[in-house]
Every structure is written in C-alpha cells, then in structure tokens.
Design a protein around this nucleic acid. Structure first.
Lengths: 235, 235
DNA sequence: AAGTGGTCTAGACCACTCC
DNA sequence: GAGTGGTCTAGACCACTTA
C-alpha cells in the first residue's frame, strides 16, 4: 500500500493531478475515470472541488462526461483552442512599433451581392463602406475593408475617423453580442498589393469578421495582412 | 417601482442577465459592477451562483475582476475566440468527400536548426520525419510535414502509416498536455506547389503545431493547405 | 485595516441516461 | 429504476489589494 497522500484540497491541485494521470497514461484515452465521489474520497476534498477540476478538463476538451455514464478521457480530442481576438492597435504596439491608420475612402455605397447577403434577407440598399490602412512605424501592416449598417451605427459619418479607428469606436459604443470569424489565405490582388506595398500575388492572411447585435448584423470587415503576420494560440 | 423579478436561481440565467445588461449598455465598458453579495441579493440566489456566472464572463473576456477592487466590464474587450482544432480527416468528411492520405516519405533524419530548436535545448540528434499528403476525393488537400520525437513515440516506425494517420495514432496513444498553434499565410514553394498540384506562389494557409507532454516536445507539424481552406470560429 | 473576490465544505435535490 | 453528473445553498475562511 502506498502511504496516504497529502490531501489535495484545492481544485487547482486536483486539476494538476488529474492532468498528470492523463498525461502519464494512468488513464488512457477512452478510459473511464473514477466517479466524483470516489475521487473526492481519495483526495480528501469535497465533491464540488473535484467537480470544479473536472469541469475545467471538459472545458479544455480533455475529458468527456455524461450523467449516469461517467467521465472518460476524451478519445478523439477535438480540442478547443483559444485565441485572443486581434486588436490591431495592440498587436502593433506589442511589436514595439507605432500604430497609425489612414482612411483610404469612406462613403455610403450599394454593397455588392456577397456583402449584402451577409446583412440578411432584406438586403440593405446602402451601407457605410470604409477602407483603412493600418501602419506599423509608418509601413503598411493591415488593410481593412469594412461595411457598416447605418441602422446600427448611425453616428459613424460624424466621427473623426482619422483619430479613432472604427473598430475601437464600435467596441466602446455599440454593444456586441455575437461574432463570426473566418481565417484564410489569399493571393494579393493588384489593388491590395499596391495598398500594402507588396508584390502582386503575395500570400495574405485574411480575417473576415461579421458582428451581430442580437440577430442584426452591425458590421462585416475583411482584414488583409501581409507576410510576417500570424495568429497564435495555445491549448 | 418594478415588480419583483422572478428569482434567477440558475447560474445560466444569471449569466444571461449579466450579458444582457452589458449588451444593452446598462453597464458600460469600464464601469463597476455591483459586488457579488449585492447581485446575489438582487437575484435571490446564493453568492456562489453569481460567482459562477461572473467567472464565465471573465472566461469570455467580457469582465475583469480584482479582489478588493471589484468587477468591471472589460474596457477593451480582448475577447477570446474559440475554435475546434482541425482534425483533417473529419474536415474532409464533413465536406462530404472521401479522405485518404499518402505517405510521401518517412525516415529518421537530422532535423534542421529551426526544427531542432523547437525540441528543446539539448537538441535531439535525430527525429522521425514523415511527410504525408491528405486527399479529399483523391485530390490534394493538405500537405503535412511532421517531426516526431523518437523518445516520446518509439513505436512509430513499426506502424502501418498508410492505414492510420500519424495524428490519429498519436491522439490515441500518446497523451498530450500542451500545444502551441500558429496560423499564417505563405506562398507555395516549387516543391509545395507540385505536391499540392497548385501554381507556384499560390497562397497557402499554414498551421504550425508543437505538442508537448509535460515539457517534453512530442511532435512538431506544419500543415499547408491550398485555396478553399479556411478556419472558422465564433465568439 | 478593511473590503472584495476566490475557494472550500457538507448536504441536498434535480436531470439525464443507461440498464 | 437506479446511478451519475449538474447545480444550488449557506456558511466559512483565506488571499489579495487598495485605502
């Protein structure tokens, strides 16, 4: 018999121990984990503490749980990754560079079909269309092409767009509830290449974001970043 | 006076109500939120329930909390996005296509410096290097270039690599605890273009992943996907 | 020093599944 | 129907920060 282990009376300690057992292979993928009550007994803590740790493991995608059936080490860990939604100004400043942005154009426009489609079935006749270039230490960094619902953000035209980026203004003014993100790679068109000062065809990292406020689309934005740009994440 | 609201006695209900207040602007960014005890009193539930909801909001990046100082609506919501870590086979099958993979090469090799660096300070002399091409309905989909620690996965050479993808074998066999992900865009090299049957310079969506098992790197993999590939996420 | 969040406990009841 | 996880409560103590 092993000597009685010191009680694990903090949920982080329990979490660490559970992670260890999974990492070391004590519990293999697909295997059943002892039930909460038993673990609580073993660790000398309350069931709630064990539950908190297990809940964290579920959140990390490392464990799957079902009532009555018990908890298992995730067999095919469709693990969930977490990343911080990029805020361009912060990214640039984090690189130790000075952030600035230029407004290339800003006007009401009839949106092309693919854009209009994102704004719902009764396609809006006009949207506010603003194209800006973000600079890091004066050099082109990210090209932002944004369409904005006039209904949701009526004051936009009055704004001093040079001073405050549209994104930051939105974040502070219009509460947002949901957001779709798509990342992809695309070759730079002639126009994008010129704006970003890159060769035509350069690989761009594209971020597309559509933001809703309870079913009403507020804005669609397409961010194009040149080489050197990357999105990082940890699990 | 408002009529007494029905008690919110589930943490999800409390969460929804807090989210609503933030979304509707009752509590503006940067503003102080009532303390847990008060909210518990207002909602007619226990402090633990309020705490659970607030903890979820912190996890979503919508609220910041500090002891003694109280809780505030995040001023610059560095919102956290969640995405499912791509599992190529599943992605392909989700598109309604048949998945297959070809092993292009598989052998022990001395890793180049940038790769070796990822495997820690005492750079391993040899790593198992395997290059595979994932196919969707017989057409090139993703090019996978992987380096594997022999120490962490000694049995790999004996495996029938054609039958089971390395990734799936790893997932089922070697428990993983931590993982770094980087996404970027790159132009296809001549070799990549040939493998993926794309023009040279085509924009590739690159995923780099390094996986550890408690501080010991298990594998580094670089996935290169052609046009049409995208990574989706919601907030 | 005091106030707020962070966490633990012990017990209880409910909800969902699987048998 | 019975077993497991999911959640709530009421109270308590601790830890961190700010005043």
């Amino acid at each position: 018999m092993t000597a009685a282990a010191p009680a694990l009376s903090s949920w982080r300690a329990v979490l660490a121990e559970l992670e260890r057992r999974i990492a070391e292979g004590d519990w293999r993928p697909g295997e059943l984990i002892p039930k909460e009550v038993d673990l609580a007994g073993e660790f000398g803590c309350s069931r709630a503490t064990v539950n908190r740790a297990l809940t964290a493991l579920v959140g990390a995608g490392l464990v799957e749980r079902r009532r009555r059936a018990g908890s298992r080490v995730a067999l095919a860990p469709v693990r969930r990754g977490v990343f911080d939604v990029p805020i361009i100004r912060r990214e640039v400043e984090a690189l130790g560079a000075a952030h600035a942005h230029l407004v290339l154009s800003a006007k009401d426009e009839k949106p092309p079909a693919p854009i209009a489609g994102r704004f719902g079935a009764p396609a809006p006749k006009r949207l506010f269309h603003i194209r800006t270039l973000h600079l890091a230490d004066g050099r082109p960094w990210v090209f932002e092409d944004r369409w904005l619902s006039r209904a949701e953000a009526p004051d936009i035209a009055a704004l001093d767009l040079e001073a405050l980026s549209v994104n930051e203004w939105l974040v502070r003014t219009v509460p947002m509830t949901a957001c779709d993100l798509v990342f992809r790679a695309e070759n730079a068109t002639a126009e994008e290449a010129e704006i970003l000062d890159l060769p035509i065809g350069a690989a761009l990292f594209i971020t597309e974001r559509t933001t809703w406020r309870s079913d009403a689309p507020i804005t669609y934005v397409r961010l194009a970043a040149g080489p050197g740009y990357s999105l990082k994440s940890r699990l």
